[in-house]
Amino acid sequence: MKLKGKVHKYGADINTDVIIPARYLNISDPGELAKHCMEDIDREFIGRVQPGDIIVADTNFGCGSSREHAPLALKAAGISCIIARSFARIFFRNALNIGLPILECDEAAGKTDASDILEVELSRGEIVNTTKGVTFKAEPIPSFMLELIEAGGLIEYTKRKLAAGGGRS
């Protein structure tokens, strides 16, 4: 699974309150949530983001609340992948569960700037910064997780498995 997009760069401890403020949690429609995504930390984000774009951040991305609205809003805003030095654990699960790929990569986080273009091959964990002409290595995403991401998330993946008579692993 290959992704390509322009980078939006953030620092450490980007929390779920700034990804999607709680004043919007009286709705759960991803498209509506996306309109307010990142607005408390980066008001221009939603006007600037294009489908396929990639977020690159420092440590502990997605810390704070368990709101799945956070990865849903980012995905609906067009973000195709998030690369960070580390992720908060609830966000980590939530992102994959809704089919938003995430990669931990120290080097990419350190050597990528805003507006760089990245090409990401998830199955190989390969991140190519085409603007700077450098390649970074992250842990590859295992094939079952790629299937889950391609299915759009855990629920659709589980449904497909149940339909195929595979049962729940």
Partner: peptide
């Protein structure tokens, strides 16, 4: 497990309690 990050509160009782998202809870 709770779809709220502060589910970890119940550790005070000697329980293992952890927050998760809505999809994990649905499953």
């Amino acid at each position: 497990i709770g779809a709220d990050s502060h589910t970890c509160t119940y550790g005070a009782l000697g329980a293992f309690a952890t927050g998760m998202g809505s999809t994990d809870i649905a499953s």
